[in-house]
């Protein structure tokens, strides 16, 4: 019996028979449907995915006409990681002229709103210079990164030290103080970059610290879009569900903890988001077919619930992309194609 060459979530090669492939697809899809309380895949979807993984092509792409817009996170940082001798403005032109990027993103090496605050003037200068020489929409991006507000890196007691000690009230109070501080920083830095001409602001890895992180981002977005009507903000998430680290935080009457992408996008829209980026985490103990079927179920539900454009996150370890710094194109291109075509996405 011929086997289908694919990979595990950590990128390791694996061969699956047709029966194993079908079972992984069904198990992955049903796991997402069960967790998210959303519809699983249809027989037509299974046929599409079976054919996708049975193909021998090393690289696949969407059908002509199905192309979508690409936005990026950590835009100018990713070239730096490869030890290329370039500055950020050069990095932007490399993305634009060589990679065929639909949008470009300027960011600071710390990639968090808090450290941008004291150097915002320098960042504005760089952004304004970049705007003179580039053509594609230029976003400025950073993470809320609430961990930077806890001791010893910030002023507030660390809830993750308080919680295991059973100090729940103290942990929650600390989170509430952190939310206030972080909203101020996100609004300050984002407003400055908007006023300097950024075509959009990217809130990246939202929810990394759980529901306080999500709430801080929603509140910051609300303040910004009230002050600057029409301001474009992309909200990219950190995980598939909002971790309840506080557990009792609400936005517009909805409890944030435990929300899956189709619930998250509704609140992002209410707060003023222009683009929403759902995340589905890759399980490294499972195959890519399992992960992809699971991702399609979650992201499709999100795309159906959304009125605004949805750009699914498809980087290392999310969106059925293996947890590997430079993922193999066989599985990456399959995930890219399937997510766009089965989830009716607007971008990645």
């Amino acid at each position: 019996m011929s086997k289908n060459y694919t990979r595990m979530g950590d990128g390791s090669p694996v061969e699956l028979t047709d029966a194993e492939l079908r079972k992984d697809l069904e198990d992955g899809a049903n796991d997402a449907a069960d967790r998210g309380k959303v519809p699983s895949l249809t027989e037509e979807d299974y046929k599409y995915l079976m054919e996708l993984f049975q193909r021998k092509d090393r690289f696949v792409g969407v059908d002509v006409g199905n192309e979508v817009v690409l936005t990026y996170d950590e835009g100018t940082l990713k070239l730096k990681r490869h030890a290329l001798l370039e500055d950020r403005l050069q990095a932007l032109t490399i993305y634009e002229r060589l990679f065929g990027a639909d949008t470009i993103e300027l960011c600071h090496v710390d990639y968090s709103y808090k450290p941008v605050k004291p150097i915002v003037g320098y960042e504005q200068g760089s952004l304004e210079m970049a705007l003179l020489m580039t053509h594609a929409p230029l976003l400025y991006g950073a993470m809320p990164n609430l961990g930077l507000y806890t001791q010893p890196d910030g002023p507030c007691p660390n809830p993750m030290e308080l919680l295991p000690q059973g100090k729940i009230k103290e942990a929650r109070e600390s989170y509430e103080a952190i939310i206030k501080d972080s909203v101020k920083d996100i609004v300050f830095a984002s407003a400055a970059m908007h006023e300097s001409g950024a075509d959009g602001i990217n809130f990246d890895t939202v929810g990394a610290s759980g529901d306080p992180d999500f709430l801080a981002s929603l509140l910051a977005m609300e303040q910004l879009t009230t002050k600057y009507p029409g301001m474009a903000i992309e909200m990219g998430m950190a995980g598939e569900f909002v971790l309840g680290t506080h557990g009792d935080l609400y936005y517009d009457g909805t409890r944030l903890a435990g929300l899956y992408p189709h619930g998250q996008v509704v609140l992002a829209e209410k707060a003023g988001a222009t683009i929403f980026g759902p995340v589905v985490n890759t399980n490294t103990d499972r195959s890519i077919p399992w992960n992809l079927a699971r991702t399609v179920v979650f992201v499709r539900a999100c795309s159906k619930a959304a009125k605004i454009p949805v750009h699914a996150n498809m980087g290392m370890g999310v969106g059925a992309v293996p947890v590997w710094d430079y993922p193999p194109v066989d599985v990456l291109s399959r995930a890219s194609k399937a997510l766009v075509e089965l989830c009716d996405l607007d971008g990645l």
Binding site: N66, E96, G100, L332
Partner: peptide, 11 residues
């Protein structure tokens, strides 16, 4: 890879 597989092509 994403630009080739799914992207619109930028400029």
């Amino acid at each position: 890879a994403h630009a080739q597989a799914s992207g619109m092509g930028g400029m």
